[in-house]
């Protein structure tokens, strides 16, 4: 059970969006750059995409959860720690060690990954605005937890080679929690989170297993 009402939560989202303006524009611009780099990779673009993603998680954790939402929900502090931790994991794996390459392939996993990226960048903010939240509370990928998580799930499904499962754990866990909160607050657009997380996790496991079996067969 949540310790605040939907009305109070929505007002907090509006105040958060107003307080961080124009961070939304920067977030949208970075999202567009990420999509361009997926289709037209350049030298260092994978590390750059990972850095953008890591920054988004750290921002949402430190600014949204630990600074704003924590004023009405003490448990937001724990979510903030998880988000900052996930940002650190992505930065370590993708930016510092360069272990992830983001590629849009012809396979179904890639197509689903791209769909999630598109949903996170376009449909999610639109759906949120049109249903309950309104434009002042539009959830933008990079600054809001829901679309940032979907963007991450989508990008990880685009990983060239094995999907790093450890990078999926926090997004999947958080999506399940967010799904429960969405149910309580009656936020229909957030109900996609647990569905997308379970699907992404399953696809990642299947894809990784195929790669292992394929490698054994070739050996």
């Amino acid at each position: 059970m949540l310790p605040f009402t939907k009305d109070v939560f929505f007002r907090l989202l509006a105040h958060y969006n107003a307080a961080i303006w124009p961070a939304q524009i920067v977030a949208v611009a970075l999202g567009i750059v990420v999509v361009i780099l997926i289709f037209k990779p350049r030298r260092g673009s994978d590390r750059f995409i990972a850095a953008v993603l890591a920054s988004a998680w750290v921002w949402v954790g430190a600014v949204y959860y630990m600074t704003h939402l924590v004023t009405i929900n003490w448990a937001a502090w724990a979510s903030g720690v998880l988000f900052v931790g996930q940002g650190g994991l992505i930065a370590w794996t993708g930016t510092l060690r360069g272990r992830i390459a983001f590629r849009a392939g012809p396979d179904s996993t890639s197509r689903i990954g791209l769909s999630l990226v598109a949903f996170a960048l376009l449909a999610y903010p639109l759906a949120g605005s049109l249903t309950d939240l309104g434009w002042s509370r539009a959830p933008v990928a990079g600054i809001a937890s829901g679309p940032t998580t979907l963007l991450t799930l989508g990008l990880l499904l685009l990983a060239d080679g094995r999907v790093p499962i450890r990078l999926l754990l926090i997004p999947v866990l958080w999506s399940l929690v967010a799904g429960a909160a969405a149910w309580l607050l009656r936020l229909p657009h957030d109900l996609i989170l647990p569905v997308a997380a379970i699907a992404a996790f399953w696809l990642a496991l299947i894809g990784n297993r195929r790669l292992v079996l394929g490698a054994k067969k070739n050996a």
Binding site: P3, F4, V8, R11, T71
Partner: peptide, 13 residues
């Protein structure tokens, strides 16, 4: 005051 007074920093509320 459960839920009803949990309005954070919202000055209007």
């Amino acid at each position: 005051s459960w839920i009803t007074f949990n309005v954070g920093d919202d000055s209007d509320l």
